[in-house]
Design a protein around this nucleic acid. Structure first.
Lengths: 210, 210
DNA sequence: GGTCGATATATCAATTCGATATGTGTCGTC
DNA sequence: GACGACACATATCGAATTGATATATCGACC
């Protein structure tokens, strides 16, 4: 989940964790922003699997970072190292700037393209970065989401047949939910139409096939 | 989170895990339903802390459940026991029916009343069971949610000042988000008005104070 | 007799969150 | 120029949640 967002943001600029967190907060899907407990382990995982790499920009004092070696060790070793080499490491706790690798770019594309649309948050994140897809792939994503919302609406209709048993507040909530789904569908249909129009315009001979 | 929903459902009827899961699926907040990995550990936790208790209804074959003792033991012991007493336990794997305790009812009320509204899912769950609150408490819940949505709208406005930098899809998503928040606020205001009207009607001498 | 799908409980690894610890850089202010 | 408050920055921990998987019984249908 968070992988898409991290890779998507790094595709544009190299960024360090803290900055990444702020930008993630501007995206829908995290309220109000990602926790550090998600972000840093995720970055470590992505680095371990070679999808991102550190461009260890240690600020000011020590331009060519000397402490990247201690990263492999565990906390105690790290601290001990830092304490024993206080003079060298004076001047900030190495701000780690990350960049995306070629494998990372491939993985991002693969994650965006994957056919199964799972939850609302994931769709939002994928949509936020879907400009990396081509038009046909984008259309497939939109339509998969549309099917999902349709199914949700259907399920709701089945569930609320004898809805007089429900309390007022739950009924009201369910009604609002229906309203939101209807709104989402209308919005999605506008996106789909726009995308289809763009395809027709760039490829007029296929216009009759939709 | 899941505690509110479990306690809220058990407040109406005694239920076993599987049935609980199905009813949870009818509530908004879980898509399409809770996972077993959430439900059963949560039930175990609630039982351990005395908020719910098992009324071990072992179906058909052995009406007065003889294997409640093995529950305390671990998996292997349980299986060994079951295998060695196959004849007795023939006819279903002891369906555990849970009921709410007095402590559970107190806890439910406390959870519903708590002033901090955290995320959307939690508000939905609380709303679904807020008929257990009195009108003033309910109104406080609604207003807290309202403040939260207002803050969200404000944050969005600040964030999207120079929004021409965003790609089309993200911009569209953000617009739809704004629309949804506006709709939620309008809906909430209707709920608040209705609640206030009910308070005024039942307590006319306080009508001027709002 | 066999197997499919619903009922039912339980556990596991991985992910995420909220809280917390720790340290640096930069104001303002006294 | 010393002090504290606050933004910047990385990291870890425990607990909750998810999705997958294992196990077992039941009724129905062929």
């Amino acid at each position: 989940m968070i992988d898409i967002a991290i890779l998507g943001l790094l595709e544009d600029h190299d960024l360090h964790g803290y900055e990444l967190r702020k930008r993630l907060g501007d995206l829908p899907g995290w309220r109000p922003t990602v926790s550090f407990g998600s972000l840093y382990p995720a970055l470590a995982r992505l680095e371990r699997t070679g999808l991102v790499k550190a461009v260890t920009h240690v600020t000011s004092a020590t331009p060519a970072a000397p402490m990247s070696g201690s990263l492999a060790g565990e906390l105690a070793a790290f601290r001990a190292h830092r304490r024993s080499t206080t003079k060298e490491s004076r001047g900030s706790r190495g701000k780690k700037v990350y960049g995306i690798t070629e494998e990372g770019e491939a993985r991002l594309h693969e994650l965006l393209r994957a056919p199964e649309v799972v939850d609302d948050r994931e769709f939002a994140i994928r949509l936020a970065f879907c400009h990396h897809l081509d038009r046909a792939e984008r259309l497939a994503l939109f339509r998969a989401r549309r099917d999902q919302l349709l199914a949700r609406r259907e399920q709701q209709r089945r569930g609320s047949r004898p809805d007089s048993r429900l309390n007022t507040y739950l009924r009201s909530l369910l009604e609002r939910d229906t309203e939101t789904i209807a709104g989402d569908l209308a919005w999605l249909d506008r996106l789909i139409d726009a995308e289809q129009a763009a395809i027709d315009a760039s490829d007029p001979d296929l216009g009759g096939q939709r």
